[in-house]
C-alpha cells in the first residue's frame, strides 16, 4: 500500500445534541474550565421542520473543540422513546450489555498525573463526580458522565508510545482484515494470522 500524505491536524470539533444547555455549560465551562470559544445562533436551517437552534463550542485544548446543539422546542423524545440506558442521543433497553453501551465515548488528553488529578478535583467538587479512576497499566483515566449522559474520559499516558507499538498495530489491522474477510472471525484466528504476518514481514 502506498503511503499517503497525512495532512489532517486533529479534531476540529465533535458535536452532540443537548436538551439541558444550562447543565452542559456548568459542566464544561464552570466545572472543568473549558472556555466557550464559538457559537452559532440560527433561525432554522433550511428545511421547514428544522427548529431554531444554538450551536456552541468549548475549547478542549490543542484548539480542538467539543460542540453542542440546543434545539428550541425539542424534547428528548425527538430521538425516539427514552431508554433505560445510554445518553440523550442513543438510548438502549435494559437488555443491551454495558460494554456495548459504554463503547462510544470521548477521551480528552492531559500531559501529566498532576493535570489528571486537577480535573478529578474539579469534577469531585461538582454535581458530576468521578465515577471511576483506572490505571490500565500504560494509561490512567478518570471517567464520569456529563449532564447529557455522554461518557466522558480524561486520560494520560503513563509512558510514551514506542515505535514497535505502531508497527504492531499495523500487523494487527492487516491480520484483522484477513480474518474478517473469511468465515466466522475469532480472536484465535486473528492471533494465528498475525503470527504468520510476523514471520513473513518482521526481519529476524
Amino acid at each position: 500500500m502506498t503511503e499517503q500524505d497525512h495532512r489532517v491536524r486533529g479534531v476540529d470539533h465533535v458535536a452532540f445534541p443537548t436538551f439541558d444547555p444550562a447543565a452542559t455549560v456548568r459542566f464544561y465551562r464552570d466545572v472543568l474550565g473549558f472556555p466557550v470559544v464559538h457559537s452559532i445562533c440560527a433561525a432554522g436551517w433550511g428545511p421547514e421542520n428544522h427548529p431554531d437552534f444554538i450551536h456552541f463550542f468549548f475549547d478542549i485544548g490543542n484548539d480542538d473543540r467539543i460542540a453542542f446543539f440546543y434545539y428550541f422546542g425539542a424534547t428528548p423524545q425527538v430521538g425516539g422513546p427514552v431508554g433505560e440506558k445510554g445518553d440523550v442521543y442513543a438510548r438502549f433497553g435494559a437488555d443491551v450489555p454495558e460494554y456495548f453501551v459504554r463503547s462510544r465515548h470521548l477521551a480528552i488528553h492531559v500531559d501529566s498525573e498532576d493535570d489528571l488529578l486537577e480535573y478529578r478535583r474539579r469534577l469531585d467538587a461538582s454535581s458530576w463526580p468521578v465515577e471511576m479512576q483506572i490505571q490500565h497499566e500504560t494509561i490512567e483515566s478518570i471517567y464520569t458522565h456529563d449532564p447529557n449522559g455522554y461518557m466522558f474520559e480524561i486520560t494520560r499516558a503513563m509512558r510514551p508510545v514506542t515505535p514497535q507499538e505502531d508497527d504492531d498495530a499495523a500487523l494487527t489491522i492487516d491480520a484483522l482484515l484477513d480474518v474478517v474477510a473469511g468465515p466466522e472471525p475469532t480472536f484465535g484466528k486473528l492471533l494465528a494470522r498475525k503470527a504468520e504476518l510476523i514471520v513473513e514481514r518482521v526481519p529476524v
Binding site: E137, L171, A175, G188, V199
Partner: peptide
C-alpha cells in the same frame, strides 16, 4: 505480576501449530 489490561492483551500472535 501483570494486572488485567496487560495480561489480557500481551499476546501478539500464536503459530498455527499451537492454540491458546
Amino acid at each position: 505480576g501483570c494486572r488485567h489490561a496487560v495480561w489480557y492483551s500481551c499476546v501478539a500472535g500464536v503459530g498455527r501449530d499451537g492454540r491458546i
